[in-house]
């Protein structure tokens, strides 16, 4: 069985986000594997351990994203690929085209990814990639099994659970609760250091950069306004209503 896992490096969720000239300041920021991708990674490795096979991890991103792949190798991934060609970076449309080109270089029975990235929260890359490859996908899964050659998953639907069966190849996206990601062992870290990470560029993937140009554009970025302290109205109910109407009219200006 061949398994592909998609990884994205994101801001550490504990980092403070700062804007500098309208851009997010990346200086000195710690990057982690997108937490939902960690579940995907754990599941991919666990499936390999249980049913046999080979796991390949892929990321599209700058050189620093290599550390995400080293982590993946340290916890049991067999092969790691980075697409670090800047001309291939872009929005969800672009990235899923690039990932499709990578996936088509081999034939994968299973593709795991996080259900969304914690930075942009788009939750598009998984389903888009499945469409590009013409295979089914199931999002936000919380349990994964293989029975009689079929994939059987539990899917989180706003608090309810759907049980879904699918043939392989299939792409699934991981929801929180799918598993408890393992931490790398020291021998794992040492072995990962000796493995080579494959680097791919537009040429290797036979991609026409024009054709996959992003469909969206970021026109501005700003931090949400700081929430101001609330106001607790005092007095009897009549006074409170009177004051509330006054405030809605004169301060909030929502009543004319």
């Amino acid at each position: 069985m061949k398994i592909l896992v998609l990884l994205k490096q994101t801001f550490d969720t504990e980092e403070q986000i700062e804007l500098f000239d309208g851009e997010v300041n990346e200086n000195g920021v710690k990057y982690i594997i997108n937490p939902y991708d960690e579940y995907a990674l754990e599941e991919a490795v666990a499936v390999k351990e249980k049913y046999g096979g080979e796991v390949t991890a892929v990321t599209v991103g700058p050189d620093r994203a290599e550390s995400a792949l080293r982590h993946a190798l340290a916890v049991g991934v067999d092969r790691a690929i980075i697409v670090n060609d800047e001309s291939l970076f872009g929005d969800e449309y672009t990235i899923s085209k690039v990932l499709a080109a990578v996936a088509k270089q081999d034939s994968y029975d299973l593709i795991f990814c996080g259900h969304m990235a914690v930075d942009d929260g788009a939750a598009q890359v998984g389903p888009r990639l499945a469409e590009e490859l013409g295979i089914p996908h199931i999002t936000t899964i919380t349990n994964f099994e293989i029975e009689d050659g079929k994939v059987k998953v539990e899917k989180d639907v706003e608090g309810d659970v759907e049980v879904i069966e699918a043939d392989m190849p299939v792409l699934v996206t991981a929801q929180q609760g799918l598993n408890e990601p393992r931490y790398p062992s020291l021998p794992g870290i040492m072995k990962a250091k000796k493995k080579t990470i494959e680097r791919l560029e537009a040429e290797d993937l036979d991609i026409d950069i024009e054709e996959i140009a992003p469909k969206t554009e970021i026109v501005g970025q700003y931090l949400p306004e700081r929430k101001k302290a609330g106001k607790v109205l005092k007095g009897d109910i009549g006074e409170q209503v009177f004051e509330l109407v006054e405030l809605l009219r004169n301060e909030a200006k929502v009543i004319i």
Partner: peptide
């Protein structure tokens, strides 16, 4: 590099 990996690896266990 190795030192950084060691720090992160040990921290991951300690955080639990």
């Amino acid at each position: 590099d190795l030192h950084q990996d060691i720090r992160e690896g040990v921290r991951e266990i300690c955080s639990r």
